[in-house]
Design a protein around this nucleic acid. Sequence first.
DNA 1: CGCAAATATTGATGTTTATCGATATTTGCG
DNA 2: CGCAAATATCGATAAACATCAATATTTGCG
Lengths: 131, 131
Amino acid sequence: MRVNIKSMKLTDTNPTTVSGQPRVPTDAPASCCPPLLAGYLSAEDATQLAQLFRVLGEPARLQILNLIAAQASEEVCACELVEALGLAQPTVSHHLKVMYKAGLLSRDRRGTWIYYRIVPERIAALRKALK
Amino acid sequence: MRVNIKSMKLTDTNPTTVSGQPRVPTDAPASCCPPLLAGYLSAEDATQLAQLFRVLGEPARLQILNLIAAQASEEVCACELVEALGLAQPTVSHHLKVMYKAGLLSRDRRGTWIYYRIVPERIAALRKALK
DNA sequence: CGCAAATATTGATGTTTATCGATATTTGCG
DNA sequence: CGCAAATATCGATAAACATCAATATTTGCG
């Protein structure tokens, strides 16, 4: 799919922060779905929730989360991940994009590097959905 | 180099119970993986855990869980699911098999019918892994 | 056994997606 | 601007998988 330049500015990249504040993509709701095991789950809720689980359904992505969580700084540079995961750079970039779009990661650009953090509320929402 | 994410080897059906006791597949460990966000997650752990999440990464399967949880009897007949989900019978059968093999569901055959239950420990393990 | 109902398997098909090499874009710096 | 490093996108490929129709298997019952 080819996105033209004008719409790209709006949909794809949102302005990066120069401060130290990580950002969260606008299209990812903070909490997604009602509890899976209590109450009624609509088809749309099921689709949303499934999409989130699917993001976690990839070993490399789980390892990314684990690697970030292991840092005292609570963040990790994308460049480090390439080496740590043993995957090609485009592959890592893809996984980061998927997780970012799912709202599981926030990003913070500092110069050439981009640092990723876990969005804890998003993980908590997932845990909550498993109630 | 291509990393081959090995799919679950579906050894065929294990013996079903004739008694009223639900069974759990032997190849599914009760609890799977160390916490995702604390401690070190090995590649194998990541693969195992990802496989579990992937099972949940399908709306129909989430709806199955939700439907079972909605029953006062805590169980549901496979035949009811076909109608409830609006999917073809083979498709439902497939989803049930996947969830059963993943240890998320237990089954109990009573005559021609097969009743499925949620395996709560398995869900709890998943929630625990999201810590 | 023979039938009917429930469930499972098979085979085919279309979609999604993980992966990589090649290449483009972004960013800081001199 | 021009260069180098980090990241993103593109295009291709292969694997995984959801889905269904057709068919097989299982089960209870008479």
